[in-house]
Write a protein that binds this DNA or RNA. Structure first.
Lengths: 152, 152
DNA sequence: AATTTTTCGCAAGTAACTTGCAATTTTATC
DNA sequence: GATAAAATTGCAAGTTACTTGCGAAAAATT
């Protein structure tokens, strides 16, 4: 796994449960597990990947979807599109409200995902504010052919 | 329709057919029509919207999908994700190869899509090139709440 | 104009994601 | 800590974007 890890945000089970409580979400086994898994990986994960990690026999994927939906509504996670046919999910960093988020690059050949430096694009959000938009968000993601793949 | 039109690229039927020929695509009625429709709208369109525009009784949506897929493969169009559950498609500008592309902002409330100024992000493509990636592409799109919606 | 090749319409098939319902777990109340 | 109320889960069925196989029709090649 090539993914660069800028800083480790792994949660303990306790911390995960606190995080749920703080956001008014019930502290079930599944939801706690999802938070742990998301916190341990610096790359955003798909519902399928989370399901695999938990063990398909241990829970139904519909429960994962319901949990992810709730996390999104409560602002715990960010939904990321990397040009695939599904979304990926990433924990927001509770310590750095708005600005501490990353963009990614995905190899269109092998699918490897690498994290880029912290986002510094407030410039753009200001630009679109001039159009009268409020509460703006931006999606900036990259694809390309990674070094390994272009040598083959 | 609020969408800002920076420059009109509407094609004539003749021009559309030439464009298909130049890309080695057969000049069928459907494909010609799709090009015309895409060229007349500055905002990217979904397969559904194109189908509606042509008239659902006039062609099957699977033909539109097949055409769009071919356009993508031949580099005629760009696939755009605006945080919706489907992709939108946009004609690439044949006159300005790589750099003349736009990003967009979509209102998360009313769905209105507005075109932003021409892209000036080669900076980013250079940045990811340093990671060893070749043939990079970026997706930068915005969402927000538009002025109209925030007054309601 | 005849033949080969590609495309089309239709119907059936995926895959991501959603939803209704009864059973179980979690939370709130005592 | 037991109990009732509320939320969550598994399962099965549904929705939607997109794909695909096949015979008929249109377009390209001769």
């Amino acid at each position: 796994m090539k993914t660069h890890q800028c800083c480790d945000h792994s949660l303990s089970t306790q911390q995960a449960k606190e995080m749920l409580a703080q956001h008014g979400i019930s502290r079930t086994q599944i939801k706690t597990k999802i938070l742990l898994i998301l916190s341990q990986d610096s790359k955003p994960l798909s519902a399928q990947e989370i399901h695999q990690e938990i063990g398909p026999q241990n829970c139904d994927i519909s429960s994962i979807w319901r949990s992810l939906k709730q996390f999104q509504e409560k602002g715990l996670t960010r939904e990321i599109n990397l040009g695939e046919e599904f979304f990926r999910y990433q924990l927001k960093d509770p310590n750095h409200e708005d600005d501490h988020h990353h963009h990614h690059i995905r190899c269109r050949q092998c699918g490897d995902i690498q994290q880029l430096a912290e986002c510094n694009l407030n410039v753009f959000d200001k630009m679109v504010s001039k159009l009268g938009y409020q509460d703006t968000e931006h999606y900036l993601e990259f694809t390309g052919i990674c070094a390994d793949c272009s040598q083959r």
